[in-house]
């Protein structure tokens, strides 16, 4: 009765495909309107802040549509934050599956990264459609560099998420601390304002936050009237590479512990 000879070929591919199906099923299948909530989150934020801005002040950024500015910021920010958040629990949520020898912890991380990126791309397309439908000015100043910046932001998210996934496995308190650190980021990451519009003293402080550089980068390339003068490329390069290397080192060291715990 030879039914299916088990081969050790393309394991990574098969495992990630299997996990992807499973992840989609658990994420969207069991909850009603699962797909809807992913989009609703960002939508609500944009409507609230665009509305507030209308009420509170007149145009401080004359040459661009503030709603589009918000949309670009929020979508980028949520993409980053979701990658980090999902990575934090990637191992613990899939622990039962390490029973299958070929499922290894890094598979679950990569699966979640792919899925987050896929969801974000579809969300962006839906927003583009809505924006186009309501006649917003969606023109992009430098398309290629906007996409590249977004790509870099994804790598940055992965690098922080990768390191976090291992640390949260090693130290129970890490995930809690990380959640506390992540929550104010929405307001201190130059999503609803540009660095240029802040007083110089505040600029200096806020530029320690690497996400501010990424937001400036993406905003600067997207809008003609904004620039990337405040972006310190070296600074965000280190923020991307150092956690990644540290993560790889810790992963090699602790992979067996993560599988067997």
């Amino acid at each position: 009765m030879t039914l299916m000879r088990v081969k050790n070929k393309n394991i990574d591919y098969h495992v990630i495909v299997g996990l992807l199906y499973r992840e989609i099923q658990t994420r969207f299948g069991s909850k009603q309107f699962g797909y809807f909530w992913g989009i609703f989150d960002a939508m609500l934020m944009i409507i609230i802040f665009a509305g507030l801005k209308k009420i509170v002040s007149s145009n401080s950024m004359l040459h661009l549509d503030f709603t589009v500015f918000l949309a670009v910021g929020f979508l980028s920010f949520f993409l980053w934050k979701n990658i980090v958040n999902k990575s934090l629990t990637a191992f613990s949520a899939n622990k039962a599956l390490f029973l299958y020898q070929r499922v290894r912890p890094y598979h679950t991380l990569l699966t979640r990264l792919f899925l987050e990126v896929l969801i974000s791309i579809s969300t962006i397309f839906i927003f583009l459609f809505i924006g186009w439908f309501f006649g917003f000015d969606l023109s992009i100043d430098n398309f290629l560099f906007t996409i590249l910046s977004l790509g870099w932001l994804i790598v940055f998210g992965f690098s922080i998420g990768f390191l976090s996934s291992i640390l949260s496995e090693l130290y129970e308190i890490y995930a809690k601390v990380m959640n506390i650190l992540l929550s104010p980021l929405l307001f201190i990451s130059a999503i609803m304002y540009s660095v240029e519009s802040l007083p110089p003293k505040l600029q200096e402080v806020i530029l320690y936050n690497p996400l501010v550089h990424f937001m400036e980068l993406i905003h600067g390339f997207y809008f003609k009237s904004l620039n990337t003068n405040h972006v310190d490329f070296e600074y965000i390069f280190y923020w991307t590479v150092v956690p990644l290397i540290l993560g790889l080192y810790l992963y090699r060291k602790h992979e067996e512990r993560i599988i067997s715990s």
């Binding site: 081969k7 070929k9 495909v17 996990l19 099923q25 299958y100």
Partner: peptide, 12 residues
Amino acid sequence: ENVKFVCRIYGL
């Protein structure tokens, strides 16, 4: 669904 998952990771 669980059976499907295991089959998929073994490449079916």
